[in-house]
Amino acid sequence: MTEEPKDTCDVIGSQKTNPSRDKDLAPYIKIKVLFFARARDLTGSTELCLEMPDGSTARDCMNKLLIEFPNLREIYNSMVLALNEEYAPESTILRNKDELAIIPPISGG
């Protein structure tokens, strides 16, 4: 459906009707998604942009990513999310231009 995202902040998940142009009816927000370590290996991408309906949660975003990159399921049960450089639960409601990072199990130290 969409092209394989590259390193740049490509938009995936735009609707065919492109409702983002009709801001009054269906306001959309843009989310920057970052992939690190194993998540980057699995997606082949360091970052991309997601277009989401206003009011979407981090979980909605994650669900979209899992459709786009089914092999992210490998780490879904061990990863966490960070929103704007802070850990955040999946229920967090996103705002336009938020930065959502996929944090696979860390291994610093």
Partner: peptide, 22 residues
């Protein structure tokens, strides 16, 4: 640091590599 700082370590072996998990 081990529990919450987002840093990742990849161990490279002679026959493969692994992202470690704390």
């Amino acid at each position: 640091v081990k529990a919450s700082v987002p840093i990742w370590k990849k161990e490279v072996y002679e026959n493969g590599e692994v992202w470690k998990e704390n």
